[in-house]
Nucleic acid binder design. Structure first.
Lengths: 196, 196, 196, 196
DNA sequence: GATGAATGAGTATTCATTCAT
DNA sequence: GATGAATGAATACTCATTCAT
């Protein structure tokens, strides 16, 4: 990695943290350069625009999370655990989420929705593949796999991203997952231990 | 209805349409008063702030839609149709949605998310009641009713609000609804005819 | 006093208190009518403008304070005590000054300066007359009476209005008064007991 | 002096002149940038806010005047002339006061009062030192020097700043100065020739 | 690679005042 | 006497972006 790239990477991390902490709209370019200790011109030397910075920030996140999800998919573990592992890898890692529930705050809506959209795009195929493995093994039984998977991811995001969910939410989500994928009751029960 | 109230109602409708058409953030107070043909002061005579205008606009919508949903709940029709009818009443009416898919455009994220949140708050109890009627009649069989209902509404919103969904999406949603509520296969099949 | 006049008087007192408490510039007509519980039109029925309200408020104060000063002037007391009594009567009465030091706050500069100017105009002649009585009695001895009196009043206002003054300030003021008026040392010493 | 600093200095001078000429409150940021021929953003690049501009303008004035006063204090001239010289240096210089009596106009109250306050803070110590020199030389004789000096400065400002004063005002001021400082009659008489 | 001075369109909000009813 | 809806000029401040050095 060259010097210039490292610098840009640094800026990206700073921007990422600030976008998360204060929201994309509430973070001005001035804020970013003040935090980074660089001049306005330097910022625009590295980035085309503020919006493009956001895209790159999101790209960086997606890349990291997709990577994690792929490793889970190809790991040598039971299929149900792959499913759960992939879904779990979607959530921002600890180090990346300095402020609890930040992504759900209204000032982060834009970023959150962009992230969610791109995450679904990249994760649905991976999950679908896992489900197909499960079908081949006789663990699941269903059609319309991508559609089912998409709904699962969507519900997962809505229910768990905000951080406010109950035991009952988890129970219903497990039940829903099993039924949507045509699994035997209890197949996905271990999710319970993984969520929090 | 007094003179002042009518005027305010007019302004509310204008603001609503503009917020939908161009997004809340992209609609300036100047835009609104230009469209309404009033002076700046008149706007601020009726509304505390632009943000409060948004709240009132949303309140107005919720009220209308909740009203429709309540009538469906108390109508003399089969419970499965009540479920579908209530969910259907959530979507903005034709006359109210001048631009197809407007609510899903990124500039409308804030408004859409505020609406979705409040809609869920008001509609989940109504739907839950309908589900309980269904359980009493032996049509449904499940626990954790509010949680199940909330997930259904959430998926429904994510899947159908955007307007881009396939026959397969509908099929999966029907299947999911039946299984989540513990209904016999085919119970909710008529949804197919109602969505579009 | 007719009904209409009483109403106006009420408004004047409300405006006075608000001007003192929040400053003339920081008190909007809306604030006043909200506090008074009347409509905008009613306010403008009674007052030509906001500025004219200020003039009337000041006039009301001046009138009260001048009245007190006149009574002191014609009272049957030693001349030195008249001098002090008149100067003392300049300061806002207890009931009229709900907030300590309010007049000196920056937001009250305009009002304070208008008051000071008019107070000097009305009080210098009264004080001058008292000084002349003192000269006739051989207590004082000086020329340029109005100029001397004006400087005394000016210093008094600057030194004591703000409320932050020391024993030494008082001592110097006494010394200055005696010397400016050509009185024997000790003549005005009793001031000490009157200021606070 | 760097390029950026020179530009800021220019803006400061322009703002200063406009504040004096039209009053702080009556000078809008738009007025200033129009006069300076710069863009809005340039103004806010150099100044945090309009209020902060005022503070800097005042700071600039104070600095200049304090500098002049200090030179007088350390000059090799008789003490009485130092006193007068320092007091004289307080008044805005000719080049700096484009409009006669501007500081006293009501729209300049805020600026004037801020200036007066800060000027007193910086000048009382200097004058006190001069008085002490006088006492050491047997020219003056008094206690409570800072308090006496402050009253002198205060009266001087009130009497002469406005520009409307008579020969008699001057005479009384001279008399007052001599008596307050315990000087022999005639010591300060030369003031007469310096004021105007 | 880096700087930082300059830009200017854009925005929400305030408030004294008027006048038809 | 009283109302309150309507006015519209005025104002401070933001911020992404550019570009000569």
């Amino acid at each position: 990695m060259k010097k210039g790239e490292r610098r840009k990477r640094e800026l990206l991390e700073i921007a990422y943290k600030m976008f998360i902490a204060r929201g994309y709209e509430n973070t001005s370019v001035d804020d970013i350069i003040a935090e980074a200790g660089i001049a306005k011109g330097t910022y625009y030397y590295h980035f085309e625009s503020k919006e493009q910075t956001l895209e790159e920030v999101i790209g960086m996140m997606i890349e990291q999370e997709t990577e994690a999800a792929k490793q889970v998919l190809h790991a040598d573990i039971p299929v149900p655990q792959k499913i759960v592992g992939i879904i779990a890898s979607l959530r921002p890692q600890q180090e990346e989420q300095p402020i609890e529930g930040a992504l759900m705050r209204p000032e982060n809506l834009i970023m959150h929705s962009k992230i969610k959209r791109r995450l679904i795009e990249t994760v649905v195929p991976l999950l679908s593949e896992a489900v197909e493995q499960g079908i081949a093994q006789g663990i699941f039984s269903c059609d319309c796999i991508p559609e089912r998977v998409r709904m699962l991811v969507s519900v997962s995001s809505d229910t768990f991203d905000e951080g406010r969910f109950s035991e009952r939410d988890i129970a219903v989500f497990i039940d829903m997952t099993e039924k949507l994928l045509g699994a035997k009751p209890g197949t996905m029960g271990f999710i319970r231990e993984l969520i929090r």
